[in-house]
Amino acid sequence: MITYLKEKNTKFYFSLPTILFLFIMVIFPILFTLYSSVTNSTLSAASGFVGFSNYRQLFQEARFWDSMGNTIYFTITASIFETFLGLLFAILLNRAFRGKTLVKTMFLLPFAATPVAIAMTWQLIYDPNMGIVNAFIALFGMEPKLWLASTETALNCLIFIEIWQGTAIVALIISAGLSLVPDSLYEAAGIDGASSWKCFFHITLPSINNTVFMAFILRFIEVIKAFDIIYATTKGGPMHASETLNIYGYLKAFQYFQFGSASALITMFTIVVTIIGTILLKIKKLTTEG
């Protein structure tokens, strides 16, 4: 009996600090954001209850729907390309060669590097006057472009940076999955005289498709929340052309200080992310079990 009580206490004492943290830093803020989304709170004015008018106004705003569209386009394009390229890179890394560990280590750099520092470097790369991209395309007689400074290309330029960063991470994840495929499978196929393409489609891909899908989900949930690189380079501009929900929510809150309206937007954003995240994880669960 005494040990039983002690065990109960352990469970309580060990998890209590984290549970307290979650209450103060997560649950309270979520409730606060929900509450503040039905008020007209700003930096200076005291908040008054306004019902759902923040949401109504938001839904009538073209800028909100544009940022929603940008978020969807940004997330889907980047996470699909990251997964596909990452898979190709991982397959390339899957054979034995000298310096393999070193190459894999290099793949860590895009993940570990400070995003703001990386963003500034890309800004220099894309710069219309002194950037290497324009210098490079000039070699082929192409006209210089504005890249991050143009409403037409800004979002795609950011997607390219995002893909650059995410691909390496996906490659490492899939590469870890590939290393778990037992060699005996390939040996058996080798005896049967299967070609390397056949091996790839009939052995490699089926053994890692769960890992590939999980990598996609992880990236999707990460990319939809992208902030640092977008904010540090374009701040969502020019003319809101590269503005995602995350960026717009931030600007609403900490540039315009419309806390009520920003809370409504952030609530919508959080709901969208949670629903998509849950659906993806559910699909994953179904396909793994089935």
């Binding site: 469970k11 803020p29 809150a253």
Partner: peptide, 30 residues
């Protein structure tokens, strides 16, 4: 504690925090 005492609800809450956007907490904190 989660591993030893199978605290699945707490574990799910932790996963939830990893999924929701960081900006959700920022206005109240501020």
């Amino acid at each position: 504690a989660i591993a030893r005492y199978k605290m699945d609800k707490l574990s799910a809450a932790i996963l939830f925090v990893r999924v929701i956007p960081a900006i959700t907490f920022l206005i109240p904190w501020f």
